[in-house]
């Protein structure tokens, strides 16, 4: 084998490779062809095995030719690869094409019930004034539900609460969350800032604005010197938190045996239909109630309030009938996002 024969073989390989590269139809085939030409055991390497037979001075010359051929083939493969992969990409894209305009799965739209959510809204507002949430028992006794709240047996004020009694004597279903005031005071002394949400029960015929099961939130603040002015300030904030910062409040005297003075709070907001609407009852904690809670009314004072959760939820959401809350029609619930 001489220099000329080897060079011829290489040049012939270059020409042959160009034809084969142009004929290749896929990138894997091209890669295979590339390694059969240029790889460690490829055609060029094979041809260059004959280099040992050449005289030493010819060997660099054939090396130059071999590098030329290698570069030419490599360039041809690179070019061919570029054109093949573009085509293959377009083909893949066409193959994988879908109609992406379908509406997609329906969202799993659950909802939170307006009663617990209204309680949560109240808790959130009151938390910013340092009120924490506590929960009491729903099965109460006459003493805590009435007597310790300054509602003696045989007092006409009992008529304000129609009560569901248990068969067990002296036991009843709490008619309001107010017994929580007593239990809170007995559990720990002032300062107290607490709200007590929960379910209440009354012997009451069901209509659009009454039910025998309903929810209240009680609030209680006792410290060294909270005043009726403070009560107004806090409840005004609560009303604005619930009905918007443009809401206005009206405070007027009310009557509850467990507060003195007692307060009724009305609210009105831009767009409210019916003018002043009563939303809660409140007052300065009656000294007898403080005394019954183990707190000295000469050194401590405070205020309490109670509101009907259903009423607040009805006003906030524009619900005309309280029965919807216990009906739990999914079409109704779905409205609460």
């Amino acid at each position: 084998m001489d220099l000329a024969a080897l060079e011829k073989q290489l040049r012939s390989l270059q020409g042959d490779a160009a034809t084969r590269i142009a004929a290749v139809a896929s990138t894997p085939d091209l890669e295979e062809l590339g390694s059969s030409l240029l790889g460690k055991r490829g055609a060029i390497t094979e041809i260059l095995r004959g280099i040992g037979a050449l005289p030493a001075e010819d060997r660099p010359k054939i090396g130059v030719v071999a590098n030329e051929v290698r570069a030419a083939i490599d360039a041809a493969i690179t070019a061919r690869h570029a054109s093949l992969s573009t085509g293959e990409l377009l083909a893949r894209i066409e193959r994988e094409r879908v109609d992406a305009t379908t509406p997609g799965p329906a969202p799993r739209t659950g909802s939170l019930h307006p009663i617990p959510e209204t309680i949560a809204a109240i808790a959130e507002i009151m938390a910013s004034f340092g009120f924490v949430v506590a929960e009491g028992q729903e099965i109460e006794d006459d003493v805590t539900n009435f007597q310790l709240l300054n509602i003696p047996e045989d007092h006409p004020s009992r008529d304000l609460w129609d009560t569901l009694y248990l068969q067990e004597p002296g036991r009843l279903l709490r008619t309001h969350t107010s017994p929580g005031q007593i239990r809170t005071m007995q559990a720990g002394g002032p300062p107290i800032r607490v709200i007590l949400p929960g379910r209440c029960f009354r012997y009451e015929a069901v209509d659009a604005s009454h039910g025998f099961e309903f929810h209240q939130v009680e609030g209680l603040l006792v410290d060294g010197g909270a005043t009726l002015a403070d009560l107004k300030g806090i409840l005004d904030e609560l009303a604005k938190g619930l009905f918007g910062s443009a809401a206005r409040t009206r405070f007027r005297p009310g009557y509850y045996p467990f507060t003195e003075p007692s307060v009724a709070v009305d609210v009105s907001w831009p767009g409210s239909k019916d003018g002043w609407m009563t939303i809660l009852g409140a007052g300065m904690v009656h000294p007898v109630v403080l005394e019954n809670g183990g707190i000295d009314p000469e050194t401590h004072q405070g205020f309490a309030f109670g509101l009907g959760v259903e009423r607040i939820a009805m006003l906030r959401h524009g619900i005309p009938d309280l029965r919807a809350f216990l009906e739990n029609d999914l079409r109704f619930l779905a409205g609460f996002r």
Binding site: V194, T227, I234
Partner: peptide
């Protein structure tokens, strides 16, 4: 007013 004293 807003009561300011004695936070629990």
């Amino acid at each position: 007013s807003i009561p300011s004293a004695d936070l629990p």
